[in-house]
Nucleic acid binder design. Structure first.
Lengths: 205, 205
DNA sequence: CAAATGTTTGACCATTTGGTCAGGATCACG
DNA sequence: CGTGATCCTGACCAAATGGTCAAACATTTG
C-alpha cells in the first residue's frame, strides 16, 4: 500500500529533513501560508530537489498528517477499561499534556487542519469516530458502575482534548497572559496540577 | 483616533458587506489562504471596488480583529467580584459557550491568529493580560474566602476558554465524532450540561 | 573503470494574487 | 438640472509561487 521504504541512505536523510522542515513551516504558517521555498530553505536544499522527493506541496502535507495521526491517538488507545477509572482519566490527561509539550508543532498542524474544516482528513475522521465511540462506551460503563460521575463521555473526551491541546495551540496567548515571570516557565506543571484538581474534584470548595 | 464614521449610506452598506464577507472567508481559509477575489465575490463587488474601501488585505483583517476583540472579552469583564463564585463561573462558561455558538467565525478567526503566534495583535495581548490578571485576583479572593477550591486562577480561565471555544474552533471534529445523529444537533446544550458538572463537581462519583 | 542508477540545480514557465490607474457611471445637493 | 463629490470597473502590472526540465554531478555496482 504505502510506498516501499526509502532505499538509499541519501533518501532517508533528505526525506527526514524535508518532513522536519515542512512540519516547522506548516505548523507556523498553515498549509496555504507555507511556501515550497521556505520549506526547501529550512531543509537546506533547493526547491527542485525538494520536489524530487515529494512531487507536490500537498503530498508533503498529507505525509505529515498521516504520520501525525498514527501516534496522535495513542494516549486515548491506552485508556484501559479495567483500570481504576479516575486514575485512568488523570493518566490520560497527563499523557495528552505531555504530548502538547513535546509535540506542539504537530498539535498546531492538526489544529490548523481541523480549524479549516479538515478537508484532507475526512477518511481518518471515520476511524477517529470509531475509536472515540469505543472509549466512550468504556467511560459509560465506569459511570454505570458508580465509579465515575454520570457525564456524557464524548463531551468528557472533548474537554480533555481542549484543555490539554490548548497549551500547544494557544501557546502564544498562554505565554502572553502569564507574562515573562516564572509562571510561564512552569505552565505545563501548573496545568497538570490544576487539571487534575478540576477533573477529579471540580471547583467546589 | 479611529477614522470618522462612514459618511454616506453607500459606504455603510459596502463596508458592512465587505467585513461580513471577509469574516466568512478569513475564518474559513485563514489570512494567507483568503484571497481578495474571494472576499470581493462574497461581498458581491469587484476587487478594485473592495480596495476602494479598504486599501489593503491586511487593513481588512486588522479591522475585523479590532472589532472582534472589542466584544470578545465582554463575558470575562462581566465576571462580578461580589457575585456567588460558583454561580459566576458557571454563568461565565454559559456565556462563552453561547458566543461559540453564535459567533463561530469570529472564534475561528481569533484562533487562527493565535495559532500563528498572533503577529497582528501583540498590543492587544497586553490589555488582555491586564484584564485576566485582574480577574485572576478576584478568583484568588474567592478561593481565599473558602468559596472556591484552591486553584490557579489563570489556568482556570484557560480551561474555560479552551473547553468552550473548542466547540467553535474544532466544530468539524466535534461533528465528525458525534456523527450525524441527534447528538450532533444538541451538542451545545449537552456541552453546557457536561461542563457545568465538570467545573462544579468534577468527575468523582 | 565504466555503465547505470540516483541526486542536484539553474533556468524557465504558467498561474495566482495583491494592488494600481484612468476614466466612466452614479449620486447628493444647490 | 448641473456640477462636484463619490462610487465603480476593465485593463493592467509586478511579485510570488507551485511546478517542470534538461543537463550536470554523485554514487553505487558489475
Amino acid at each position: 500500500m504505502a510506498a516501499p521504504k526509502p532505499r538509499t541512505r541519501i533518501q532517508q536523510i533528505n526525506i527526514a529533513a524535508i518532513l522536519e522542515a515542512a512540519l516547522e513551516v506548516f505548523s507556523q504558517a498553515g498549509f496555504r501560508g507555507a511556501t515550497l521555498d521556505q520549506i526547501a530553505a529550512e531543509a537546506g536544499m533547493s526547491k527542485p530537489n525538494l520536489l524530487y522527493y515529494f512531487r507536490s506541496k500537498e503530498i508533503i502535507h498529507r505525509e505529515l498528517i498521516d504520520r501525525l495521526l498514527d501516534t496522535w491517538l495513542d494516549p486515548l488507545r491506552a485508556l484501559k477499561p479495567d483500570g481504576e477509572p479516575i486514575a485512568e482519566i488523570v493518566a490520560y490527561i497527563r499523557r495528552k499534556l505531555e504530548m502538547a509539550r513535546e509535540f506542539p508543532r504537530e498539535s498546531r498542524l492538526f489544529a490548523n487542519e481541523i480549524l479549516h474544516g479538515g478537508p484532507h482528513i475526512q477518511d481518518e475522521m471515520k476511524d477517529l469516530k470509531v475509536l472515540v465511540d469505543r472509549k466512550a462506551e468504556v467511560i459509560r460503563g465506569w459511570s454505570a458502575a458508580g465509579k465515575l460521575a454520570e457525564v456524557d463521555p464524548h463531551h468528557l473526551i472533548f474537554s480533555i482534548w481542549a484543555t490539554t491541546q490548548h497549551y500547544a495551540d494557544f501557546d502564544a496567548q498562554v505565554c502572553a497572559v502569564l507574562g515573562d515571570d516564572a509562571r510561564a516557565a512552569t505552565r505545563f506543571e501548573d496545568a497538570a496540577c490544576y487539571l487534575e484538581q478540576l477533573f477529579v474534584n471540580g471547583l467546589k470548595p
